[in-house]
Design a protein around this nucleic acid. Structure first.
Lengths: 183, 183
DNA sequence: GTCTATAAAGGGATAGAC
DNA sequence: GTCTATCCCTTTATAGAC
């Protein structure tokens, strides 16, 4: 999170653990695999937090607001994982080595599945009338997730900030994005 | 744009030019300075394209829509610069070396000034009634720019796409973001 | 499971010829 | 202004002791 993937050496990782590289390499075969584990966990946390709202009964507009709010909140509460993942949106840059292809496809699938949750609710909303009807749901879900994911980059906990403040912030973000900027 | 900053060697850059490193180093003192030049040009293109709409007469809501649309269009039409810049939002990761501090502060200032253009119009809109009133204009401008900048990551020209299609896409994006997702 | 020591490779940067 | 040749450091990864 602090220096980015490329500028963090395995020695840096070990030092943070108060150990040496041997320990790290005992648990992770390579530096990319360590990153992949971080990325996967970031996605897992998001999916587990957000999925319940997808299929809950009620208007799609309300579900989408809950999803957006939960997404923002989860970013804030697992920031080291989420910022690391958010700063590497170009996952394919690892793709040169054939050994990583399978893992990469898997992670990209996780991300696609996650984005599809939002697309689905957007489409639900077009049907039940609680959300606008977009010519391309993919475009709408991308701008929505773009606004939300950017939180992982700029968010920094304020001194003394607690869970309640974070929830309020997440709610404000969700409300802003869902309702737009026009009066 | 293709491999990211860290995974692109100076030899790669030279090869793309059909030359060798000597040529590159004749024009840029170091790899970071080459990146800084790319980043600066990306910001300059955005600022020059968007600034006119900021102080134009008319409702802030209309100006903000033009700004958003122009921003998205500029991202698409100068994608190699913009994606490179967008994939390095954590500029401070270059900051270890004292020699770069001045340049970095300068670039971060450019980015802040640019974001301030959006904040200013958001505040204009709160006054003239064409935009919502936000408790924190900074938060609103960030989610707005998050949605827009994400375009630089996912956008890929479609086969045969022309300037007209791009303008339409940019307009749709701006409209989506400004008006929100609710019906 | 963790350490020390070291191998092996890559890539940023420079010197000097042309 | 560009090229060739090379230096040198960083960093990934492994071997083998404990």
């Amino acid at each position: 999170m602090q220096k980015g993937y490329e500028n963090t050496s395995m020695d840096d990782v070990a030092e943070r653990l108060g150990a040496t590289k041997g320990r790290v390499y005992h648990h992770f075969n390579s530096k990319p695999e360590l990153f992949f584990a971080v990325y996967r966990r970031a996605m897992d946390m998001l999916t587990q937090a957000v999925a319940p709202a997808v299929s809950r009964p009620g208007l799609a507009g309300d579900r989408l607001r809950d999803m957006a709010q939960t997404h923002a909140l989860t970013l804030m509460e697992s920031l080291p994982f989420q910022r690391t993942a958010a700063l590497a949106p170009d996952l394919w840059r690892f793709g040169r080595a054939a050994e990583h292809q399978a893992t990469l496809s898997d992670l990209i699938m996780l991300r696609d599945i996650y984005e599809a949750l939002f697309r689905r609710v957007l489409e639900d909303g077009a049907r039940d009338g609680s959300l606008r009807r977009f010519p391309e749901a993919a475009l709408a879900s991308r701008t929505l997730l773009g606004a939300l994911n950017w939180v992982a980059v700029w968010y920094q906990p304020r001194p003394g900030e607690g869970a309640a403040e974070r929830r309020t912030l997440a709610a404000t973000i969700a409300e802003t994005v869902l309702s737009g900027y026009r009066a």
